[in-house]
Structure formats: structure tokens, C-alpha cells
């Protein structure tokens, strides 16, 4: 009996300690970036040498941070378009496939999830060569296409989960009451799976905003993207504005997350 109690104690100690390290590792960096961005000094250090908002002021200055603003605008544009294309294509496909168990449907489903496992960087290079052979120059539109392909699995995952929770009886009763397929789709299916679609769309937006491996190959002089620009800022001089950009990104995502948590139960949908 005593050995069991010491065993249970060692269990709580070991698991508790590892989990504590885990939580520290998960949250620590986010907090450190936020605090660093308010530094008074001219270099990136933690803890910051004093608090000020000078780097944010510099970041929001229209002339000295023009390139960052343009990159951010490009990234937002691409993320918006990617979100719309991925959501439409992904929702249609998951309506088609979610409740099918045939061999072809399963195979197609697996195929659609490939970009999640395959190295995105290999796809980025492939896309660059493909578009070049087609005679196309780097542009925001090409980046949108590339991003759409790699973020589709996120939309498929969340909408398929919603589809599989949809009562087939609801669709049948709608049809037996004389509703057309499209009417049923619009008035029953779509409202029921809307939270899944919204969660998927949000993930697609964030994944596109964050994408490096595809943007890396498809950006040109006229289509600079925010993560690539930030990488450049980190490589050359460790510009403290990187911390300020990070602060803005973290704050926006946090706000969006809280709103969507209220609206559609975001975290639960991402888990399921």
C-alpha cells in the first residue's frame, strides 16, 4: 500500500512538473514578445530596459514604415481572398463527401488532406516552376491560388466535423415536406454547419496570413508579404519593429479568437 502511495506521488510530481514546463513553454514566448515590444531601448532585450510605445509609434508612421504597411496590406488581401476561395471549395467538397463511406469518397478525402502532411516547401517550389512555365510572373493572385491549396485541409476538417454531426432525419423531413435540394441546403444544411464553416474560414485566414513556405517562392518585388518582410527585418539588423508587428498580430488574433469563441465556440471546434 505504501509503495502505491509513493508511486502515485511520483506520478503527480512527474506529470505536474512536465506539464508546468509545457505551459511555461507555450505561454512564455508570447508574453516575452509582448513585453519586449514596449521597450524604451534601441535593442531587443528581455526584460526591457524601460517602458515606452516608441516602436509602435514608429511602426504606425506612414513614411518610415511604408514597406511594412504595404506588405501587411498585401497579406491581408491575400488572406481574405484565400479564405473565401478555400471556404467555398472546402464546404462544397465536405457536403459532397462527409457522409459517404464509398471507396472513391474515402480516397478523395485522403487526397484532399495531403497538403497537411506533405512538405509545403516542396509544393512552393513546384508552384513557382509551374507558374513560370505557364509564363506567369509572380503576383498576389498566384499567391492566393497557392495559399488556397495549402489551407483547404483546415476548412475540410472543421466543416466535415459539423457535417457528421448533422441529423440526416432533418434533411429527409425537409425533403419529404416538398423542399427542393437547394432550399434544404440553404435553409437546413448551411445554418447547421455554419459554425464549422466559420471556424474553418478563420483558420484558413490565419494560416494564409502566416504562410511562409509558399509565399517564399511566389513573392516578387511587387508582391511583398508580411511574414517574408518580417523575416528580412530579423535577418538584417534585428529591427525592434518586428516585436511591435508581433504585438499587433498577437493582439488582433486574441481579439478575433475571443469574439469567435463567443459566436461559434471556436476552441471546441478546433479540438473536434
Amino acid at each position: 500500500m505504501r509503495s502505491r502511495r509513493t508511486g502515485d506521488f511520483s506520478y503527480s510530481l512527474a506529470i505536474g512538473l512536465l506539464a508546468a514546463i509545457g505551459f511555461l513553454i507555450l505561454v512564455g514566448p508570447v508574453v516575452i514578445v509582448l513585453l519586449t515590444s514596449f521597450t524604451e531601448g534601441r535593442s531587443i532585450r528581455f526584460p526591457p530596459s524601460g517602458l515606452s510605445t516608441q516602436w509602435y509609434q514608429l511602426l504606425f508612421d506612414a513614411t518610415s514604415s511604408r514597406q511594412i504597411h504595404r506588405a501587411a496590406l498585401n497579406s491581408l488581401q491575400v488572406a481574405g481572398a484565400t479564405m473565401i476561395m478555400a471556404t467555398v471549395l472546402g464546404t462544397l467538397a465536405s457536403v459532397a463527401l462527409a457522409r459517404r463511406s464509398g471507396k472513391w469518397a474515402r480516397a478523395l478525402d485522403t487526397f484532399f488532406m495531403w497538403p497537411m502532411i506533405l512538405p509545403m516547401l516542396a509544393f512552393g517550389l513546384a508552384a513557382l516552376m509551374y507558374f513560370t512555365f505557364l509564363g506567369l510572373r509572380p503576383s498576389l493572385e498566384l499567391i492566393m491560388i497557392g495559399h488556397t491549396i495549402v489551407v483547404i485541409p483546415f476548412v475540410l476538417r472543421t466543416t466535415s466535423a459539423s457535417m457528421s454531426q448533422l441529423e440526416p432525419a432533418l434533411l429527409e423531413s425537409s425533403a419529404s415536406l416538398g423542399a427542393s435540394w437547394f432550399y434544404t441546403f440553404r435553409r437546413v444544411t448551411l445554418p447547421m454547419i455554419a459554425p464549422g464553416i466559420i471556424a474553418g474560414g478563420f483558420l484558413a485566414f490565419v494560416a494564409s496570413l502566416d504562410n511562409v513556405p509558399v509565399s517564399l517562392f511566389l513573392t516578387g518585388p511587387r508582391s511583398d508579404m508580411l511574414p517574408i518582410r518580417m523575416w528580412g527585418m530579423m535577418e538584417s539588423t534585428l529591427d525592434v519593429r518586428v516585436a511591435a508587428v508581433s504585438g499587433v498580430l498577437i493582439a488582433s488574433v486574441l481579439v478575433l479568437m475571443l469574439v469567435l469563441e463567443r459566436l461559434v465556440g471556436l476552441t471546441r471546434r478546433l479540438r473536434d
Binding site: 514566448p29 508570447v30 514578445v33 496570413l209 502566416d210 511562409v212 511574414p227 518580417m230 523575416w231 530579423m234 518586428v242 516585436a243 508587428v245 508581433s246 498580430l249 498577437i250 488574433v253
Partner: peptide
Amino acid sequence: TSVVVRTF
């Protein structure tokens, strides 16, 4: 939060 932010 962006991979670049986490790397930073």
C-alpha cells in the same frame, strides 16, 4: 500567432 513571431 504567426510562426515568424514565435521564431522571433
